[in-house]
Computed example of a mutant assay.
Amino acid sequence: MPRVRELEVFRLVLPYGARSESLLVKLTDHGGMTGWGEAVSPEPKAWSRLEESLAALLIGVDWEHPDAVPSGDRAVDMACWDLWTRMRGVPLAHAIGGTRTSVMATVRLAPDPSVESLVARVNQQVCAGYGHVTLDIRPGWDVEPVRAVRQAYPALTLAVDGGNAYTDRGQLVALDSYGLEVIERPFPLGDVHAHAALQDEVTASVAVEVRSTAELDDYLTLRAAKVLLLRPTAFPSLSEARRAHDRAAAAGWDIQCAGGQGAGLARAATVAVASLPGCTLPCDVTQPPKQNQIVTPLVGANAGVVAVPLTQPGLGHTIDETRLARLAKESFHA
């Protein structure tokens, strides 16, 4: 039974790409075992809440399972899972019900200055071993780039991500003629009826991203999609993410895991969830640059395949604490 004797919290501003922020939590039990968790782009008050309440919540308190720790914080939940599974000597992927030893990956490509340069970037990724490509699209950058990529690669498995930016489904319906596998996040969050109308008109599967099982139930009721874009770190706990997986899989939906941001721990949790049996589509752990990561081994794809750590307990990665100390802008210890 874990009993935390000390904890540390770090605020990181990652120096590459969009300079995203992460909160890292380190828990150490009385036997010296550690568990780590990460919250990517945390809520504005997350730091002060952890500083004020985390010690009283965890230090010296016995708990039998991560679900018994009512923290309401994603980083704390992940750290509890990591500690709990390390103490038992089992990989996190197995502990939550994962069955895969590796998962296929998609590579995500942002809008490009020109269609020609986009096709060249797709070529680079295909040559690197990716058989699945996701193109970020926006109104005004959609039909032409998709047409060009499809003409250059007739057999490539292709998805698009609308970034919740569309209000009209006309252009999205036009894309359906290019043999897309998935149209991700076409409309603003919560517009269930717009997603349902689009799914009725296209043969591609519409993918929706939710942050709770209650939101998912709204889409399931109206059959407003066929794919759940499951971002584990967007849920309050890994158990809640698992419940969303179970509901979507029971409804016959495909599931794609996503979570490429952060310092590596959140990516590792994404890979663990992607090993669940219902996660049938390639996962997305490709952004931002790998230099952001402070974990060993790095989390990412090799020739379009991501390994699921099964020889090490917990998340399956170690922390480069020297690099962590360089990136940490604030920290506290209790």
Rank of each mutant, 00 (worst) to 15 (best):
P288S: 06
A303S: 09
V306C: 14
V295T: 10
G304E: 06
V308E: 09
I319M: 08
E321D: 08
E321L: 03
R323T: 11
T296K: 09
T296N: 14
V305M: 09
A307R: 13
E321R: 09
T296Y: 12
T296F: 06
G300L: 13
A301T: 06
N302A: 13
G304H: 04
E321C: 00
G314H: 00
Q287Y: 15
Q291K: 12
R323H: 03
R323S: 04
I294N: 03
Q312I: 00
Q312C: 00
E321G: 00
T318R: 14
V308I: 12
I294T: 04
V285C: 01
L298D: 11
V308S: 08
G314F: 01
D320K: 11
Q291I: 02
N292Q: 15
T318N: 09
P309G: 07
V306H: 07
L310C: 02
V308Q: 10
T286P: 00
P288T: 05
A307M: 15
G316P: 10
P289Y: 03
P288W: 11
T311L: 02
V285S: 02
T318Y: 04
G316N: 09
G316D: 10
Q312F: 01
R323W: 05
I294M: 05
K290F: 00
V295Y: 07
Q291V: 05
V305F: 04
T322S: 14
P288E: 05
G300K: 13
G314K: 01
G300A: 11
T311P: 00
T286H: 02
G314L: 00
G304T: 02
T311S: 08
L298R: 12
Q287G: 01
Q312G: 00
V306W: 07
Q293I: 09
P309R: 15
A307C: 10
T322C: 15
I294Q: 08
V299D: 04
N292G: 11
D320Y: 14
P313K: 12
P309M: 07
Q293V: 07
P309E: 15
A307K: 11
H317M: 08
P313Y: 08
G316Q: 10
A301W: 04
N292C: 14
A307G: 13
Q287E: 15
P288C: 06
T322F: 08
L298V: 15
A301N: 08
Q312N: 05
T311R: 13
G300N: 12
D320L: 13
V306S: 07
Q293W: 15
N292S: 13
H317E: 04
G304M: 03
Q312V: 03
V305C: 12
G300S: 12
L298T: 10
I319K: 07
L298G: 09
D320G: 08
A307W: 05
